[in-house]
């Protein structure tokens, strides 16, 4: 196996670990504290590209499914996929893919990165909120009020931070991975 390929495997594993650590890092905010989990999901999408970001989130989900407490709030176990927040977990995988897919196909500018993280952040809710509604039998309004609205301020900040951090890290990342960035 080539060193490049191994490097991608290790980087994807690193991002899986970062996503897990993100679930433990709380930044106090109003109305709810920020957890850095989906910040690292977006960052994985922006830096690793669609395929490896998706793999990275899948590894994170697998470790959580195996029972290790890596999900938000120190939870773990297969049961969480079928619980009210299961949709957000699946949403993370799709979100990373979407973020990577957009950033791979667009130029490396702040504007396109913002577009990628915005669509990716909304993807999490596109799966998470209907799932929450279905599992808890709530109406749409209540599901959105509980599962989306309190997190929007934090999400905007995380998306902005992902763009800023990705911009700062991309030259170093590309140099290491020898990726030809889109012109």
């Amino acid at each position: 196996m080539s060193t490049d390929h191994l490097q991608r495997i290790v980087y994807a594993s690193l991002f899986s670990a970062l996503i897990a650590v993100g679930a433990y890092i709380h930044i106090p905010m109003v109305p709810v504290p920020i957890v850095l989990q989906n910040f690292f999901v977006l960052l994985a999408g922006l830096l690793l590209g669609s395929r490896w970001a998706f793999i990275s989130v899948c590894i994170y989900l697998l470790v959580g499914a195996l029972g290790l407490p890596v999900f938000s709030g120190g939870r773990g176990g297969l049961g969480h996929f079928l619980g009210p927040t299961g949709g957000y977990l699946f949403g993370f995988a799709l979100s990373a893919y979407v973020c990577g897919w957009i950033s791979e196909r667009t130029r490396d500018t702040v504007m396109f990165s913002v577009a990628a993280v915005t669509v990716a952040s909304l993807t999490v809710y596109a799966i998470g909120v209907p799932w929450l509604k279905m599992v808890t039998q709530m109406d749409w309004q209540r599901a959105a009020l509980l599962g989306m609205v309190p997190f929007l301020v934090g999400d905007v900040l995380k998306a902005a931070a992902a763009v800023v951090v990705a911009k700062a890290l991309r030259p170093m990342f590309n140099r290491r991975l020898r990726i030809a960035t889109p012109a």
Binding site: A12, S13, S16, A17, A20, Y24, I59, Y60
Partner: peptide
């Protein structure tokens, strides 16, 4: 391998 690497990285990152 990826799962093991992830678990290896966890305490280091923390």
């Amino acid at each position: 391998l990826m799962v093991t690497l992830m678990l290896r990285f966890l305490p280091l990152i923390m």
